[in-house]
Design a protein around this nucleic acid. Structure first.
Lengths: 250, 250
DNA sequence: TCGGTGACTTAACGTATGTTATGGATAATG
DNA sequence: CATTATCCATAACATACGTTAAGTCACCGA
């Protein structure tokens, strides 16, 4: 299962828009096979992110270990899949990755991806933006999978708080949230009644004050501790190496 | 909140790798404001996908309506966010999108994105690949949020089945799955014990036969009906319009 | 001013799923 | 071949959450 055989690249081939150079670049990603034994780690969360892997043989998976001892698997990778794209645009890995059984992978560097991108800064920027969106999606998946209702709601509110702060829509730890409890329940996969119950709990604990659309988090840090929110990456600029790679001559 | 002010693009600016042309292209996306009223739909699931939106004012959200009447919200969009990237590389929208309150958006076309990409076929291909990965992640989020254990497991098995079929690793509706129930439970957010229980249920219903790593789905279509699996898009080639856009002169 | 509507709260009750524990089958190891 | 570890099945019990329902409060149009 080579990259050129994936649905997407086959589509581009059929449509006749992949130049011979493009095809050569793509094939060039699959030159250095590496044999991996079962259960071997490819990388750990927070390791430097500087390369991807195409899975040639075997199964792998990406996951996050949580404070409470549980772990959430984000994705299983089968032959032909690319591991590591999730981290593109971040300095460090957002999740760990490991082989399940024995297999073969082709590692390739960010540098090679930049060549695929034709060294277009904007392409890199758009891709990084998309991956940040996916990072938020992954966080939510983790919370839906592993945490109880009050943690999910706390996590949700804290995420909104951070995103609003970034666009300067938070003042004195308060913000406007035009969501009904019904909408929140649809987002968090719980019943509207339980959203209400859970808001009451958070209010009693002094973590959230809410009157209609007005929300105040008296102690955002306490909330962050409760939810194990990894906000280190959210406002992170692109890795410094990106500039060098973009400026490097082909 | 303009695109040039987002973390990613600010990073590229700081690093001095955004050319004046790049900046002009990016600014060019935000020329045609459109005022949207509260609760107005931006598009529905399965509509033609041919453009994105930058949110300027107001909140929006993307969601999927499910057969059982519930709905799963995938993401809330705040000012500065781009709506619609999730569908890039697909012919039709994978989820609906609507405004929550009244607001302003800037629509921009795929064509404009292709210009950002410098008309690099490979950049388009990589981006589309990443978005397909995200589509699978979204499906899993929907299932974690809205469905009971046996539906989650059924969905999981059917997804694996489809992905293995694509790489010709399914024979006679059987395949090899090197996963322990512990790993499956970590992926689906349920206890290992309940995974076992649920496998027993599916076996009694004649939907799944399993002996250790050997899995057989006697009637994959029955499973697909049970889980409301939208597999129409998984093996879809890139939209035909992509070739035209890639070939168009700048 | 009044009834109507939608958003929210709280309570009572049922159930899906988690937890803990035990035993059996199979694979791994010496 | 014996021993041990791993994986899995099943049962008994506990609980978080869903469901249904009723009541309060704010807002809105007649």
């Amino acid at each position: 299962m080579a990259l050129l055989d994936t649905v997407v690249m086959r589509g581009l081939t059929v449509q006749g828009v992949l130049s011979p150079e493009d095809r050569a670049l793509l094939l060039g990603l699959e030159l250095n096979p590496r044999h991996i034994s079962a259960n071997e780690e490819l990388w750990q969360e927070r390791a430097d992110a500087d390369m991807f892997c195409v899975v040639k043989e075997g199964w792998a998976y990406s996951y996050r270990n949580l404070r409470n001892g549980s772990k959430q698997i984000l994705k299983f990778y089968l032959p032909g899949d690319i591991i590591g794209m999730r981290d593109f645009g971040f300095t460090r890995r957002l999740s760990s990755a490991a082989m399940i059984n024995q297999g073969v992978i082709y590692p390739f560097s960010y540098q090679q991806l930049f060549e695929l991108f034709g060294r277009s800064s904007l392409a890199v920027g758009i891709m990084a933006t998309a991956m940040r969106q996916q990072a938020l999606l992954s966080e939510r998946l983790i919370y839906l999978g592993q945490y109880a209702a009050h943690e999910r709601l706390a996590h949700f509110l804290y995420e909104i708080y951070l995103r609003l702060k970034r666009i300067e829509a938070v003042e004195d730890n308060s913000f406007l949230m035009p969501l009904t409890q019904q909408l929140i329940s649809d987002a968090l996969g719980m019943s509207p009644v339980h959203v209400s119950r859970t808001f009451s709990m958070l209010r009693e604990e002094g973590l959230v004050i809410r009157d209609r659309q007005h929300v105040k988090l008296p102690d955002p840090e306490a909330l962050a501790r409760l939810v194990e929110f990894n906000d280190s990456y959210i406002d992170e600029l692109l890795p410094l190496t990106f500039a060098e790679l973009l400026r490097a001559s082909p």
